[in-house]
Design a protein around this nucleic acid. Structure first.
Lengths: 363, 363
DNA sequence: GCGCTTTCAGTAAGCGCTTTCTGGCGTACG
DNA sequence: CGTACGCCAGAAAGCGCTTACTGAAAGCGC
């Protein structure tokens, strides 16, 4: 149980009877070294199971092989999908990943950037919408400024207000518009929307694209048919419940994310509605599981893994211009079983205004 | 765009007109420092937005604040749940996390341990079953040995053959046995099992516990009713399809994991069977989504987040004994809509032996 | 054959911290 | 009043690397 220290480059050099510098050069391939010396070094390193001390390397000026990734919640399928792409690309490029989960706390996000600055990571990847609070935006701008000023690189999936950073942007606006048109084509004219926190760019874009496309078709969205909720399954459930409480006056509900749609589906069902017979439901993102729901969910498919792989590779490419680089990734409307033509007039009229009342036990 | 370097402790000391040593002591609270000096240092650090260089700290001997986490796939809901718990605990303890995703490649697992040794992480956390291959077990043992010999700590969720390491162990055997008894109580006597890769401890334990409990009730499991598949949704789908191809002779199917069960559910449905009317289906783990499936899945619930939090905190506790510490976490049987009493004899007899044939287009 | 360039191994100077050691000062005690 | 001691700030020695810089040997032209 003797606590033997780590094998150092010095040990390797000694074992190979060469100088420290030579050993370093061989191991990094930095310069030509006579074949026999090189072989001795390689053999010694192998023998001693030498692994360079990353801290020493970093301190001595070698470029960092560690990337920082910040997301809201690693267990959210949306982030998980993107994270998978990031990990895949990181593996391919021999990069390590420090993962940060903010649990949706803006203070934690700022703290992570600071900590990653301390770790001298090669780049920071922001996955998911930034926070709406003006104060935190300032904090982030300052913290990221400190980091980039010292040579750090920052990139994001999704738009960040007020931050000019490289990004891979899902085309939320166009995707939502395309979805709206597909829904109109099905015959729907009355819609409700379940959004996430209102000031997130993702939310604004998806809602905006959706309503714009409706407007083009001469359809308007009643204000009381838009409900804001948290970007979680339970947030979707709560939002849908709220909508039902207000009185559902729509033949089709659009949830800003699939995760919310999953909750909404449960809420609609719990309140006695059948999807899509009574009401159609659509989401956004195409997280894997929604294919297996009953009914399978209509959505706007985003290539989540590619998004992750994309940011990582975007940030790896050396920048030529001072302007931030933006890569747009389109979404694809996927019509599944949760959407259908709206119920016939007659049938719809028989629906209770608020199904909630129906469920209350009679006094 | 002048690439200004990072602020160093030296800058702080200079700004506060104290020595480097004093600044270090103040910032770390290592020793008493006169109040006015301390205030000056603190103010200077704040002013300059100083963040210590983690590499320099590590190199100079400060204990690492970084943990290494290795899992098979960050986007698998089982790992995602555990990872969430790990991240939560890490946040609470002010620890950073380097995440590794092996994509189920044993070579990558070994490579990650080596790299984490290079990063001098404080501990390595293995999430998920180890690999069955004897050769890779040897590789891992060697690599982990190198790491622990140098003072590293290792812990795991799930049993690792041949590796004596601290672990948080879900009670797979007892959980599966309890599930079997619950299923027997429902009236089932004929079972089929969809397992993951056979030599994984998790698989062995779950299958073993299940069959043991059946045996106790005098029920045996036909060999051809056990199908091995990959630990993925598609693996579950394929395994269930294989089972149907062989001829399903069971009123209840147990999938080793919920993820597989999701695939199995889809396969059963695609082949014209209704769950649970025609056949009951149960899984294991209780990943969040299965509550929202139709039918919602019966399972053995594991507190995934607690598992993650548990390993991290287990490894943080200083070890007293040389023996590996093991913390057992029980699972809870949760009966949901995917299981019911077996269909009545009469009805079952009318089912085709192999529904597959029915679906083939007539020639 | 002499002085030039070229090639390549070795020496040493940091990188930014922590921590031991040194030393100055103020207080308590003989 | 002088000596011993405690307290706390500063000087300096690394931690394990990378990378100039140094210098020895070898190859070349005249």
């Amino acid at each position: 149980m003797g606590q033997q220290p780590h094998v150092t480059l010095d040990d390797v050099a000694r074992a190979a009877t060469v100088s420290l510098a030579t050993a370093s050069r061989v191991l990094n391939g930095t310069a030509r070294v006579r074949a026999d010396l090189r072989d001795r070094v390689l053999a010694a390193a192998e023998d001693l199971a030498y692994t360079p001390n990353a801290h020493a390397q970093a301190l001595a000026g070698a470029s960092s092989q560690v990337m920082g990734v910040i997301c809201h919640d690693v267990s959210d399928p949306y982030f998980a999908g993107i994270a998978r792409g990031v990990m895949r690309a990181a593996t391919e490029h021999d990069l390590q990943v420090i993962m940060g989960s903010t649990f949706r706390d803006p203070a934690r996000e700022v703290a992570y950037v600071s900590m990653m600055r301390g770790q001298r990571v090669r780049a920071v990847l922001l996955i998911g919408s930034g926070f709406e609070d003006r104060g935190w935006q300032e904090e982030m701008r300052r913290e990221l400024g400190l980091y980039t000023a010292a040579g750090g690189r920052v990139a994001a999936v999704s738009r960040h207000r007020g931050l000019r950073i490289d990004s891979v942007l899902p085309e939320n606006r166009a995707g939502a518009a395309a979805l709206a048109r597909a829904l109109l084509d099905l015959g729907h004219r009355e819609f409700a929307v379940l959004t996430g926190p209102r000031a997130l760019t993702t939310v604004v874009d998806r809602l905006g694209g959706f309503t714009d496309a409706l407007a083009e078709a001469g359809v308007t969205l009643a204000a009381d048919q838009i409900v804001e909720g948290a970007f979680t399954r339970d947030g979707g459930y709560a939002a849908a419940t709220e909508l039902l409480g207000r009185g559902l006056r729509a033949t089709c509900v659009f949830a800003s994310t699939d995760v919310m749609a999953v909750g909404a589906l449960a809420a609609l069902r719990d309140h006695g509605l059948t999807v899509p017979a009574d009401v159609s439901l659509a989401g956004f993102d195409d997280i894997p599981i929604i294919r297996d729901l009953t009914p399978s969910l209509t959505t706007v498919a985003l290539p989540l893994e590619d998004l992750g792989k994309g940011v990582l590779e975007l940030i790896l490419r050396p920048e030529r211009t001072a302007r931030s680089r933006i890569e747009r990734v389109p979404g694809t409307v996927v019509l599944r079983a949760s959407t259908s033509a709206p119920p016939e007039r007659k049938r719809r009229r028989t629906l209770p205004d608020s199904p909630l009342t129906e469920l209350r036990p009679s006094p």
